[in-house]
């Protein structure tokens, strides 16, 4: 049996909105580690890894490890019916082929339950080794989303380069070229407005802007985003979910043939 009560139900709504366009079906795993998911997009370019730790739930009960296969579009449809301030509880009985989402309004004057069919999903799990990245950039998530959106109106790919100068986002297309350079900036009013660049060695990687734009749907989950980059390796784009966990996207680079 599983019962997870999340007071900040809006968080789960935002999580679904951030991944439903990238991934169709996924197994949500519930264990002592937390409520987690690892899934790949259909074109095998990106993997999303989500972790919501037990401490973030008002009630976190699962008496054994449970894996629940869900269609993310259908799950998003159901969660759209919850208010942003609602408390969301997930419930599943042992051996059941359904999961129930219960939505409670903050004043407890409206309670709804939605039952969704589960599905069997054969998914391969990937192991992500700890890596020493050539460069790690932390910047405001809204700024990163803005840059990806702006560049995608010019070109299809973005070259992300980190040098002593800062982090450069470049694209080229039929109408011309675009370059945006963000320099380290810690002289800000709030820590989440800072741009912090840790560079062990210069790095330059190329990514499809379609995918980068898709990842930025997670922007509402966090004020900051962290890009971890190493030559020839997938980028890790991480949005921390305050006091609960994270959503990480591993995005394969484009490689010179």
């Amino acid at each position: 049996m599983l019962e997870l009560r999340l007071v900040q139900g809006g968080l789960l709504k935002k999580v679904l909105e951030s991944i439903k366009d990238l991934v169709n079906d996924a197994n949500f795993d519930c264990s002592a580690t937390g409520f987690s998911l690892q899934a790949m997009d259909s074109s095998q370019v990106a993997v999303v890894a989500l972790l919501l730790r037990p401490e973030g739930f008002e009630r976190y009960w699962c008496d054994r490890n449970i894996s629940m296969g869900m269609n993310l579009n259908n799950m998003a449809k159901m969660l759209k019916c919850a208010g942003n301030d609602d408390i969301i509880t997930l419930k599943a009985e042992d051996g059941s082929d359904t999961v129930t989402f219960m939505f409670e309004s903050p004043t407890q004057d409206k309670i709804a339950d939605f039952e969704m069919k589960l599905m069997d999903i054969n998914s391969e799990r990937l192991g992500f080794p700890e890596a020493d990245y050539h460069a790690i950039v932390r910047m405001p998530s809204s700024e990163f989303a803005r840059i990806c959106k702006d560049l995608s109106s010019i070109g299809n790919t973005v070259v992300i380069s980190v040098t002593k100068e800062g982090v450069r986002f470049s694209t080229r297309g039929d109408i011309g070229t675009a370059n945006v350079v963000c320099r380290q900036n810690t002289a800000v009013d709030k820590p989440e407005e800072a741009t912090i660049i840790e560079m062990n060695e210069p790095v330059s990687l190329t990514f499809g802007l379609r995918y980068m734009n898709s990842l930025t749907k997670a922007t509402p989950l966090s004020n900051t985003v962290t890009l971890s980059l190493s030559s020839g390796l997938p980028a890790v784009v991480e949005y921390r979910i305050a006091e609960m966990g994270y959503i990480r996207f591993y995005l394969a680079p484009k490689i010179e043939e």
Partner: peptide, 14 residues
């Protein structure tokens, strides 16, 4: 143009 890499080629299955 560079070719899109496959994410499966970078990580081991566990």
């Amino acid at each position: 143009d560079p070719k899109q890499g496959n994410i499966m080629s970078f990580f081991k299955r566990v």
